[in-house]
Design a protein around this nucleic acid. Structure first.
Lengths: 230, 230
DNA sequence: CGACCATTTGATATGGATCAAGCGATGTGG
DNA sequence: CCACATCGCTTGATCCATATCAAATGGTCG
């Protein structure tokens, strides 16, 4: 049940963040936030740990390419995945001193790494940066609240909800490419891989989806999925 | 399963917030935050709705006395309680325009009602107010993350965890007074009242707790509870 | 081709839900 | 002050969704 994670060398995890002074004009002009301009891109290999639970939260991160999972593990090895972060998503932002989850690359990734102290210093001077930090945390809060509502549902509802959620993140697409394994999905939904697998075949049999390959899902009947999402 | 909630008259829910200019000196001196000084105390009767899901988030709230529950209800009536807010706790703070949960008084309450627009305006000028808003949202985020970890556990672990959580909120106390019903506890833990009840008697039989009355729990063996909290 | 790993499928077990009844406290009207 | 209704909680019996255990299948890479 426990994932074997390659811990990458310390040197890889101590990026020298480019120090950038406040540049709100450039930020708004380019559609980039001032925050992102303070970051340095950094690659992570498949299954590499980006940070561990309870480690000092020195950086926050934005996915450029690839997918990242955050997770917690209980004493006895049960793993709960917090979220799957896709390109454009920010993760690892903490107000407190330490990370509350661990983070790993699901596939080879590029991640923008941003020194937290720089952002916080900037936020103290510029209220729109402060507002952005607050908004990012609030976005995460809403996500986790939605996740709770998933976890009280039946297996079918959870899987349908998961598929719709993933579909909503690549808008317009009727076909979704899952970057994560069945085990990851199961640990996200609080189910076992067997139940996830069975539920998918059941959805396929009821013509709600097609599963051409295990990592590819075609949404055949979105209305049906929405209906069973409770 | 659905709670009958008395909706109190509109007039009761439109408090005239005392308008207060920025008073950071007084705030730090008194140990009160500038935010709280902008609020007006307001009573809510047992089971009164404080706000509803998706209503405009005009106010944020701080419990003075009594207990508040927040919750969401799925189509078919399943209710999930977000949290129980005790005196000192802030709830209903949103970054977006609308409340994502509903809130009700569990018992007769006094609640400090604070106009959100005032706080946000102040935050734009004073970075420590902005920081406080961010921190409140982050506190809530951590809580919800912990809640997720509860929801993947067994019934016994959930109930033990709940008792320890409640105990931690009245520090030092070896005996806890539960302000909420078994149904509320069940809906918080994602269990049925029967399972909550059975689990409590089971904990009582194993001498981990005593239950002199249904609303009062004595922690007899905190170590045992901690051990079964996973 | 063969080994390995992820996924699916099958058989069985079980924790918690559901259905149902009993119990104790609280309150109400006669 | 007592009979009785009500409500919240507990306890009992049974059921069922999902977990667990086990085996087969399939896709990937040497």
């Amino acid at each position: 049940m426990l994932h074997q994670t390659m811990v990458n060398p310390v040197s890889m995890r101590q990026p020298t963040a480019r120090f950038t002074r406040s540049v709100p004009a450039l930020a708004s002009q380019s559609g980039l936030s001032a925050i992102e301009l303070m970051g340095a891109p950094m690659p992570f290999a498949r299954n590499a740990e980006i940070y561990g639970e309870n480690e000092p939260a020195e950086y926050l991160y934005k996915v450029i390419s690839g997918t990242v999972r955050t997770y917690k593990v209980l004493n006895d090895g049960r793993r709960q995945i917090g979220f799957f972060y896709l390109p454009g998503d920010v993760f690892g932002l903490e107000v407190g001193a330490r990370h509350s989850f661990s983070a790993e690359a699901i596939a080879d990734c590029k991640v923008l790494v941003i020194r937290r102290s720089n952002v916080i210093a900037l936020a103290a001077r510029e209220s729109d940066v402060a507002r952005q930090l607050w908004e990012m945390t609030a976005t995460e809060l809403r996500r986790v609240q939605d996740h709770i509502m998933l976890l009280i549902k039946t297996a079918q509802e959870r899987v349908a909800g998961f598929l719709l959620e993933m579909a909503a993140r690549s808008p317009g697409a009727t076909e979704i490419e899952l970057p994560m394994s069945r085990q990851d999905i199961a640990d996200y939904l609080g189910l076992t891989i067997e139940t996830v697998s069975r539920t998918l075949t059941q959805l396929e049999n009821s013509a709600a989806i097609a599963v051409p390959t295990s990592r590819r899902i075609v949404l055949r009947n979105r209305a049906a999925l929405t209906r069973m999402n409770a």
